[in-house]
């Protein structure tokens, strides 16, 4: 590995599987001997839970404001495979401003020289939900990360959120912001789900880095407080996460996506609605549908 770490941001609609997928990618990379930092950028502070068996970890923001001299040891812990786990943290629900919290936490991590001192091969930022305000765009701005992966399912609202994230990426990329590494299709169940995500990627000048099916083994591992990589290392699902991690590690082809306009996105969705209707009513086979 070269000494310059690959800095990756993971975004996607709320609840789409960002933390689960990010943790499994981190675990897969660490398993191969890489030095990995995973930073949860979410006031819930639950990004790295499955890497550290759900044990208590003070957040960056709690620590900044509890003591004047914060050390890396105070705000991090080593999880599975030695992954350095950090949670930015933030206000309790309903008060303050979580977005400004993200930018303050990232600033502190830079001041602490975490990225140089730990000498990681990979840094993964798991960022809350949609980009709702400027603060949540901090990880993709001004060179903090190199590339963004956007997680989506084939559900329209997830694709809609991905399209909005593409807008944020295309806004910041020209001035040194992160570029798109690709989409990660998660929780695929229906046979046509893959086709929908592929088609959205094609329409927006992006690509799909991996397809992760919905599987009960994910939930089961989570209940043990572990990633799939740790809890069920021999399962096909673990292999899927390893393949995804390898694709991301090898990928150097970053792009500026072309998000769809509101009308185009609506037409696109309607088109798929018609296809799925025909398919569900046995009017066509899966492959004729596209």
């Amino acid at each position: 590995m070269s000494n310059k770490p690959l800095k990756i941001a993971i975004y996607g609609k709320g609840g789409i599987g960002k933390s689960t997928t990010t943790s499994n990618i981190s675990a897969a990379l660490a398993e191969q001997g890489a030095r990995v930092i995973q930073i949860g950028c979410d006031p819930k502070a639950d990004s790295t839970g499955t890497l550290r068996h759900g044990e208590y970890l003070p957040t960056v923001l709690d620590s900044i404001y509890d003591s004047s001299d914060v050390r890396l040891e105070d705000i991090s812990t080593r999880g599975f495979g030695g992954v350095l786990c950090i949670e930015a943290g933030g206000p309790v629900p309903g008060v303050g401003c979580a977005g400004r919290g993200i930018s303050a936490a990232v600033e502190l991590l830079q001041e602490l020289n975490v990225f140089e001192e730990f000498a990681p091969d990979y840094i993964l930022f798991d960022v809350l939900g949609d980009v709702v305000c400027g603060g949540f765009a901090v990880p993709i701005r001004e060179g903090i990360t190199d590339c963004v992966y956007v997680i989506t399912s084939s559900d329209f609202m997830a694709v809609y959120a991905a399209n909005n994230l593409f807008r944020a990426i295309s806004k910041y990329a020209p001035s040194g912001g992160a570029r798109l590494g690709g989409l990660i299709a998660n929780s695929l169940i229906a046979p046509y789900s893959k086709l929908i995500v592929d088609d959205f990627a094609a329409k927006t000048g992006s690509s799909v880095a991996g397809y992760v099916p919905r599987h009960s083994i994910v939930a089961q591992s989570e209940l043990y407080g572990k990633t799939v990589i740790e809890a069920n290392p021999r399962s096909p699902q673990a292999q899927i996460y390893r393949d995804l991690a390898n694709t991301i590690a090898a990928n150097t082809d970053f792009a500026i996506p072309s998000p769809l306009g509101a009308a185009a996105l609506k037409d696109w969705a309607r088109g798929w609605g018609d296809q799925i209707y025909k398919y569900e009513n046995n009017l066509v086979t899966e492959y004729e549908a596209i």
């Binding site: 923001l61 900044i64 404001y65 933030g90 206000p91 309790v92 008060v95 401003c97 400004r100 919290g101």
Partner: peptide, 10 residues
């Protein structure tokens, strides 16, 4: 301060 703007000012 910045802290209050993040964590709430109550």
């Amino acid at each position: 301060t910045e802290k209050d703007s993040i964590m709430g000012s109550e």
